[in-house]
Amino acid sequence: MSSGKIKETLMRGVFFLTAITSIAAVVLICVFLLINGVPAIGEIGFFDFVGGQKWAPTNVPASYGIFPMIIGSIYVTGGAVIIGVPIGLLTAVFLARFCPPALYKIIKPATELLAGIPSIVYGFFGLMVIVPFVRDSFGGDGSSLLAASIVLGIMILPTIIGTAEAAIRAVPESYYEGSLALGATRERSVFRAVLPAAKSGVLAGVVLGIGRAIGETMAVILVAGNQVNIPTSLTQGVRTLTANIVMEMGYATGLHRSALIATGVVLFVFILIITLSMQAIKSRGEKNG
């Protein structure tokens, strides 16, 4: 074998190993979650765990119901989508079709900078600015579903803007020009011809944003109030699945600890559903495009 060939085989092995690393990490995390979490779900009882309304790990006998946290995660994520998607989408349309180049040089890096800010900084900003704002404007404690939604809505902006802008730019210029030629205005052409064509890319951005929102922990824990109850108004506090894990992991022992890991299993299932729907959207987009 020539030295070139040996090198090639060797490097192929190196590349294979690096490729395996990420897969191994995913597999290890799955195995860890299942081994540690599933027995706890079995011990608590699946329906008592997922459907239980009471989380009182220190009571005797203890209750481990994470239903309020599941609802909390869904509400907070929904709120973030309601606030973040319209702003993000319209920003993407503006950046892709209407923005003067001089302004683009400022707005684009600014949205990218938004993605680089650590989540604990978002949380602190939320605690110092948004929580008092919510308390003074809408009443309640301030630490609430609304505050968490606003903070998360801002946090998912860069994800949505980036993906949606790329999707809008990928639409062939002929769609836009054809629409203009038929007599439509510029706005109409963008919203009726270009945006529908970019639909799957935009949806992918939204789903990525949802994934970011549901997994966010440090920012949410500072502004959400973390009460274990199902909120009936926007000014009440919520506890998300991630917040539940991180708040109590430090002290938990025995079944309490296992229940927290099992909370991670439920979160993992959510992320799995989001990733799968992401794949589905992608493959559908490819088929249509």
Partner: peptide, 23 residues
């Protein structure tokens, strides 16, 4: 964009049940 932003906030205000008297 600004309109959507403000209407989102107004919507939140309208649906919040616990009093605006605090302000």
């Amino acid at each position: 964009a600004a309109f959507i932003l403000t209407s989102a906030f107004a919507g939140c205000g309208g649906s919040s049940t616990s009093g605006s008297s605090a302000s």
